[in-house]
């Protein structure tokens, strides 16, 4: 009897117990939902299948035995080197694994590394050309999306991966939100560009754009700075001075005035000094 009750309690507890996530610890608990949304888009969402051929459907039938088997589409584990953040690799990254080159020999460790090239991309909204490290896939994606800006704005953060691409996306969104100030010299073009890209603004609020494209550390720093700015300590001397002035005011205006005159008329010893005079005069 007792054991079953214990089990029931344990089950109940396990239902209510929630494991702490990174957003529940320390200052991170003060991160706004706008950043949580970006984090979800960047780290939680599943990226597109780049390193394996994804199969359609949920089930498949074995041709020989007629068995029904589930289609799993488990992504290959991928390594993200630090250099990924200096370029725009279009979802490609390093695959670490083994090659079986000969059935009679031991498997060989191998790294499949994307072929990188340096090229120029043109951003319509920012009105600039940028020299960036890309892969063949990035150029293909840019062409498929009819332009670099469209590619960045349409692609979720999990597929962009790199910090550079996310920062650029953030900059483009900010630019759009402000109504393309870079085209201020040409209002017709400014209107045209804004009209072409304004559809992307609908999926973000200004706060979300503000928190978009920040790394974990940057977001935490931002929260800390905001907190610090909010409750900035006031120096005690200012508080005491204020109190004193109030007290003096309360004591009476006339007396206060008199004392002020007294202070202004009394000559300080400094005013008696004459640095340009002769030695004995001083």
């Amino acid at each position: 009897m007792a054991s079953s009750r214990l089990q029931a309690t344990a089950r109940q507890l396990s239902k209510t117990f929630k494991k702490k996530t990174r957003f529940d610890i320390g200052i991170a608990s003060e991160l706004p939902p706008a950043y949580k949304k970006f984090w979800r888009e960047w780290k939680v969402l599943k990226p597109a299948a780049v390193h394996f051929v994804a199969q359609e459907g949920k089930w498949r039938r074995d041709e020989l035995t007629g068995e029904t088997l589930p289609i799993q589409n488990i992504p290959i584990p991928i390594k993200y080197p630090a250099e990924i953040h200096e370029g725009i690799w279009g979802g490609e990254a390093v695959v670490k694994g083994f090659q079986k080159r000969d059935p009679q020999r031991r498997r060989v460790p191998h790294y499949w590394v994307p072929v990188l090239k340096r090229t120029v991309v043109r951003s319509e909204v920012l009105n600039t050309h940028l020299s960036v490290t890309v892969t063949e896939r990035t150029i293909k994606l840019i062409n498929d999306h009819y332009g670099f800006d469209h590619y960045l704005l349409k692609t979720p953060a999990c597929d962009l991966v790199s910090m550079l691409a996310l920062k650029l996306k953030k900059q483009i969104l900010t630019e759009l939100m402000n109504g393309c100030p870079r085209y201020a010299h040409d209002p017709a073009k400014q209107k045209e560009i804004y009209k072409e890209y304004k559809t992307y603004l609908s999926s973000y609020t200004p706060e979300e754009i503000e928190w978009y494209g920040l790394s974990w550390y940057e977001a935490l720093t931002k929260v800390a700075k905001q907190k610090e700015a909010e409750n900035k300590p006031i120096p005690l001397k200012k508080v005491y001075r204020k109190n004193l002035v109030e007290k003096l005011k309360a004591a009476g205006l006339e007396e206060n005035k008199g004392s002020a005159d007294e202070i202004s008329t009394t000559t300080s010893w400094l005013s008696k000094m004459n640095p340009f005079g002769k030695k004995d005069e001083a």
């Binding site: 695959v95 694994g97 083994f98 090659q99 498997r107 191998h110 499949w112 072929v115 896939r137």
Partner: peptide, 17 residues
């Protein structure tokens, strides 16, 4: 280790676009 033996199916860099 044997679960991470991969085979190259297609090199998309050399496919004619």
């Amino acid at each position: 280790g044997r679960h991470f033996v991969y085979d190259l199916v297609e090199d998309t860099n050399i496919v004619k676009k």
